[in-house]
C-alpha cells in the first residue's frame, strides 16, 4: 500500500485529508509541524509528501531544504499545499526542486486526490 505523509498544522484539514486519502486506499502518515514531518519522512520513507508552508517549530520551506539534503529525500515527490500564494518563501522553495504547488482554498479535495493519484502513478 502506498504511503502519503501529510505535514499540516491545521487539525481540521489533517482530519479531512486523512479521511479522504485513506478511503482512496492509501496509507496515511501525519505530522503537525516541519520538524516532526522531517523525522517521519526520513524514517517512514513515504511515496508522496503533502507539505504545508506556515507551521510551528519548522516551516515547510526549511523542512523541504533539509529533506533535499538527504539522499532518499532528494527524489521523493512533494506537493506543496498552502494558503500562501505570494510569499518569498515559496519562490525560495522552488529552488529546492520540482514539486506541485497548490493553494488549498482554490482546490476541490477531489481534484487534489487526482493529483495525488497521478503523482503516485495510479
Amino acid at each position: 500500500m502506498k504511503k502519503v505523509l501529510i505535514i499540516e498544522d491545521e487539525p481540521s484539514l489533517v482530519a479531512i485529508l486523512t479521511e479522504k486519502i485513506t478511503s482512496e486506499g492509501f496509507e496515511v502518515l501525519k505530522a503537525g509541524d516541519g520538524k516532526e514531518g522531517l523525522d517521519k519522512a526520513l524514517l517512514g520513507h513515504p511515496d508522496l509528501i503533502l507539505l504545508d508552508i506556515i507551521m510551528p517549530k519548522m516551516d515547510g520551506v526549511t523542512m523541504l531544504t533539509k529533506l533535499r539534503e538527504d539522499e532518499w529525500g532528494k527524489k521523493v515527490p512533494v506537493v506543496i499545499l498552502t494558503n500562501l500564494s505570494d510569499d518569498d518563501m515559496v519562490s525560495k522553495s522552488i529552488q529546492n526542486g520540482v514539486f506541485d504547488y497548490l493553494v488549498k482554498a482554490d482546490w476541490k479535495i477531489e481534484d487534489l486526490i487526482d493529483i495525488i493519484k497521478r503523482k503516485l502513478g495510479e
Binding site: E10, I16, E19, K20, V103, K104, A105, K108, I109
Partner: peptide
C-alpha cells in the same frame, strides 16, 4: 483561506 478551505472540503465531502 484556512477556514475557507475547511468549509470547502468538508461540505464537498
Amino acid at each position: 483561506r484556512t477556514p475557507l478551505t475547511t468549509i470547502r472540503w468538508y461540505s464537498e465531502m
